[in-house]
Design a binder for these strands. Sequence first.
DNA 1: ATACTATTTCTACAATATTCGAAATATGCG
DNA 2: CGCATATTTCGAATATTGTAGAAATAGTAT
Lengths: 105, 105
Amino acid sequence: MKIDDAAARLEALGNPTRLKIYRTLVRAGHAGLPVGRLQERLKIPASTLSHHIKSLLAVGLISQVREGTTLLCHAEFDTMRGLVDFLVAECCTEDAQCQGARTAA
Amino acid sequence: MKIDDAAARLEALGNPTRLKIYRTLVRAGHAGLPVGRLQERLKIPASTLSHHIKSLLAVGLISQVREGTTLLCHAEFDTMRGLVDFLVAECCTEDAQCQGARTAA
DNA sequence: ATACTATTTCTACAATATTCGAAATATGCG
DNA sequence: CGCATATTTCGAATATTGTAGAAATAGTAT
């Protein structure tokens, strides 16, 4: 993952409202959750919610599938995994006597 | 980790300049790196660098120790680990047939 | 004290983000 | 078609962030 992509994803997760949206979707797992259900649970005005969802979509952290009249949102677990890998990668590569921080991976 | 703390840390890492600073420190490992060395490597004006370092300090992602006339910066690996754990935690807790995304942890 | 290096604080400005109501669009149904 | 529901786009106000030059502070040595 390029550093600018990683930064964009981290920034997307760095807003409390968006992080709550994302976490709710992560908890929902592969089943996903419609936008409307997210709105009920999080009590966010529809336009605000839509705006944040768009940000998460733009960086590939979530995806959407239309299911009739509703839009199902899913967390993109591969993207999350890639981001986590990026964070723990290259740990201590310049530190000869580094022993264990890399176990975070 | 509370969600607002996680968001604050993710936001701190969500700026490309700050992420570069952080990664450089992660690579430097436990040995750390003085502010001045960071400035040389990243070619960032001192005031801008100082500003970003303060952000990373504020959320506990890095720490500083004075070493004579220079300030040594270190990545706080425990904080990073906590953040990574937060990201992969509670994956699919509402999805009965979730099978593997949690292996990201 | 003076000088020198390292780093931060001050200050200001442009750019971007967040929020949300109102209006617009999309889908499905009778 | 016409209506109901789901969701997005528009528009605009307000707040926050990123950037960096100039000035200030901190530490060390002479």
